[in-house]
Simulated assay, not measured.
Amino acid sequence: MTAERTGQRIQQALDALADSGADAERAGEQLVREIIGFHGQGLARLVPALPPPALERMLDDPAVAGLLLLHDLHPEDLAARIDRALAALPERVEAAGFDPDTGTLRLRRTATGCGCGEREVEAALACHAPEVTAVELERAPQLLQIGTRPPQAAEAR
Rank of each mutant, 00 (worst) to 15 (best):
T2A: 11
G97V: 02
G113M: 08
S20N: 08
L125S: 11
Q12R: 12
L105G: 03
Q8L: 15
G66R: 13
H74E: 05
A96P: 07
D15T: 08
H74S: 04
R81Q: 00
P52C: 04
D19E: 11
L59G: 06
G97S: 03
A126G: 00
E34A: 12
A79P: 12
R5S: 09
G42I: 05
A13M: 06
A85L: 06
T2E: 07
E155Q: 14
I82S: 06
H128D: 12
A88I: 00
Q8E: 14
Q41E: 15
C114W: 02
Q142H: 14
E29I: 02
G42A: 08
L43V: 07
P62V: 03
R108F: 12
H39A: 15
F38E: 05
A18V: 13
G40P: 01
P151V: 05
D99L: 03
R106K: 15
L73E: 11
H39L: 15
D15P: 00
G147E: 15
R57W: 01
G40V: 12
R149D: 13
F98E: 05
A95Y: 02
V132W: 00
E29M: 01
P151H: 01
G28Y: 01
M1C: 10
V32A: 12
G113I: 10
R149G: 13
D61K: 01
D61E: 07
G28M: 06
L125E: 10
A65S: 15
P53G: 11
A88E: 09
T104K: 07
A63S: 14
E34F: 10
P75H: 01
E29K: 03
A65M: 04
A123M: 09
H74L: 02
E138P: 04
R92S: 14
R92I: 13
E94T: 13
E91Q: 13
A22N: 09
P48A: 14
Q152E: 08
A96K: 07
A129D: 04
D77C: 05
R5N: 09
P51D: 10
L107S: 04
L73G: 13
V93S: 11
H39M: 06
T133K: 12
P51T: 11
A154R: 10
T104H: 01
R119F: 00
A54T: 15
L59R: 04
P53S: 08
H74K: 12
Q152F: 00
A123P: 00
D101T: 14
L78E: 07
R149A: 08
C127Y: 07
L14M: 15
P151W: 04
Q11E: 12
G117T: 10
P53Y: 09
R26E: 07
A79D: 15
Q12E: 06
Q152L: 08
R108T: 11
P130E: 06
Q142C: 03
T148W: 05
R109T: 13
E138N: 12
A156Y: 01
A54Y: 00
D101H: 11
L86H: 06
T148S: 15
I146Q: 05
Q11M: 14
L50E: 02
A134K: 06
A129P: 05
E120L: 04
I35F: 01
D19A: 13
L70T: 15
A126P: 01
L69H: 15
L50D: 04
I36P: 00
R84F: 02
L107F: 11
E131Q: 14
A79E: 14
L125M: 05
A18K: 08
T2H: 02
E56I: 00
L107P: 08
E29S: 02
P53D: 09
V32I: 15
R5F: 09
G40S: 10
F38Q: 13
A63G: 09
A153K: 11
